[in-house]
């Protein structure tokens, strides 16, 4: 069972919920669980999950290089490139692949009749394995600064997940490609929102997205207590299961700012997260 933790709006509490669910499942409910940080542009679960690093795997993109001495400037590679990454100027004997635009699909070297294209690995990110209470319990995907291929790193990170047990994906924010890359590989989506106009606006976008992807989903409200009724009206009108609410408290923000797992910062909040986790297990038919 793969569960993605998402939020349309950034800063609503994806990591708070992901690390909380992970902690409760792993530590208290003794589940076979694994957490994957799929927010590859800004992975932050490691701040809270202080686990020991066991292995690092590079994520490489095969970037083509065109040998101008073998190239006949036939233009087949340029025509095959879906990303407009090839610039060619035959009179000047100039041909080049822009590494910034290249997605490493390999179409150009496949169509080249002269074998003038060689592919060289270029590192765009890395995947790190950590041991927590169990081996490889936490995996982090990380995109190198300057690369724009988040989805490639996310997809590869997800291939590192175990084949059984509960897998939690801490998703990137928003509803664009990196989120789709994460959510499309999940069986259930936990949407984190907050009782503010921004929270509701972006929740609606997220609900539309998960419905189009045909994913079962539920909502967790963070910062509950901010009195914004339209959020609650929206949730009940659309019959979306509410998994639970995390109260808006200064001491929780304080624990978070010190890098503590919010769910583990006190008995009362632990109970809140335990209830959310149990409701989630019920919703995903993983009853205890």
């Amino acid at each position: 069972m793969k569960i993605a933790i998402t939020s349309g709006k950034g800063g609503t509490g994806k990591t708070t919920v992901s690390t909380g669910l992970f902690h409760i499942l792993s530590r208290y409910l003794k589940h076979h669980v694994q957490l994957l940080d799929c927010d590859v542009e800004e992975p932050d679960c490691h701040i809270f999950i202080r686990a020991s690093k066991t292995a690092v795997y590079p994520v490489n993109l095969m970037i083509p290089e065109i040998k101008t001495d073998l190239c006949t400037f036939c233009g087949k590679c340029k025509a095959a490139c879906a990303f407009n990454a090839i610039v060619m100027l035959p009179p000047a004997k100039f041909i080049e692949v822009s590494a910034d635009m290249c997605h490493g699909c390999g179409a150009c070297s496949y169509v080249c009749p002269e074998n003038a294209i060689v592919e060289k690995p270029s590192s765009i990110g890395q995947i790190t394995h950590f041991d927590y209470y169990a081996k490889d319990e936490f995996i982090e995907g990380r995109l190198h600064i300057g690369s724009a291929l988040q989805t490639r790193v996310i997809r590869e990170t997800i291939t590192h997940a175990r084949q059984q047990g509960i897998i939690l994906f801490d998703s990137p924010p928003g509803t664009s490609c990196p989120v789709i890359a994460t959510v499309s590989k999940s069986d259930y989506v936990v949407m984190v929102t907050e009782p503010t106009p921004f929270g509701l606006n972006d929740l609606i976008l997220m609900v539309d997205t998960v419905k189009q992807l045909g994913k079962k989903h539920g909502i967790t409200i963070n910062k509950a207590g901010l009195d914004y009724k339209p959020l609650y009206e929206y949730i009940s009108q659309n019959n979306i299961p509410l998994l639970g609410e995390i109260p808006f408290r200064k001491e929780l923000a304080g624990a978070y700012s010190k890098g503590e797992i919010v769910a583990a910062s006190g008995p009362e909040i632990r109970k809140v997260f335990e209830n959310i986790t149990r409701k989630l297990l019920h919703e995903t038919s993983l009853n205890l």
Binding site: F83, N84, A85, V87, M88, L89, A92, S98, M101
Partner: peptide, 14 residues
């Protein structure tokens, strides 16, 4: 174009 328009326009100029 979806992307890489700057590169292709540069080629067009040349």
């Amino acid at each position: 174009g979806a992307g890489g328009v700057g590169l292709q326009v540069a080629e067009f100029m040349a």
